[in-house]
Amino acid sequence: MKSSRLFAWIALAIGATYFLVPLIGTFEFSLRMRRGEYSFDAYQSVFSDMQFRATFGYSMLMGLLTIVFGMLLVVPTAYWVRLRLPQIRPLIEFLTLLPLVIPAIVIVFGYLRLYNSSSFLPLTNSTNGTNLLLMFSYMTLSLPYMYRAVDTAMRSIDVATLTEAAESLGAKWPTILFRCIFPNVMSGVLSGAFITFAIVMGEFTMAALLNRPAFGPYLQFVGANKAYEPSALAIIAFAITWLSMGLLQIVSRFQKTAPVKA
């Protein structure tokens, strides 16, 4: 018993070292911009860069839109699959896993072929059209996480009986979906939302090939041209991810629903 605890601590220490040492190294390097002393000059330089603000704001907006439209697509889909079409669940699971298997570059080339200026739906003809296409790309990329998170949350409530209870009380579909089901799968929706946000903030391929001013391409640009700022940006990106995960934990802790019944 004692030796197994010791091994557990050793494994934990090795794991922590593997993750923390490069992070500490990066952080330490990001503080070395001023010669001979530690400073936050690199961070100051990043935050005062107009391009940082523009790309960060753009990606934030895209992240929020992706979450909203992703939820509008995924929640009703997962609900209907659970309620009326459980037999097609394996197919939906397979489809939602495809973005993990197909490289982003293949997907974006597919989009460019389908939606270029000479196609039947020339989305790339305008800035807004391209923004829309980028948002749809992000929705596709986040689908495996979003669908699973929502589907798992739906598994923890009796969707069919809650729907019937609401129906017997006179409720129609929008009421059932948004007042009885949606709030009870909020933990899943938020989990999916935070993961989606983290994906959108760091995504490079789609934004670069669609030529949109997103945070991912900016990270790459800074990384290729500056010394200390990329390290500061890496730490900032980590902080955003951790913040998302922390919020996820808080939200799931304050869920008002009962523990899942076996």
Partner: peptide, 30 residues
């Protein structure tokens, strides 16, 4: 008539209370 048009109340074996609503909100729902 659809279930929501029949004005028939139903109590289920698994209670089926809305977990996100308080007791008063559950009773007020209909």
């Amino acid at each position: 008539l659809k279930p929501n048009q029949r004005n028939i109340g139903m109590v289920f074996q698994a209670y089926a209370l809305f977990p996100n609503m308080t007791v008063a909100e559950n009773v007020a729902f209909g």
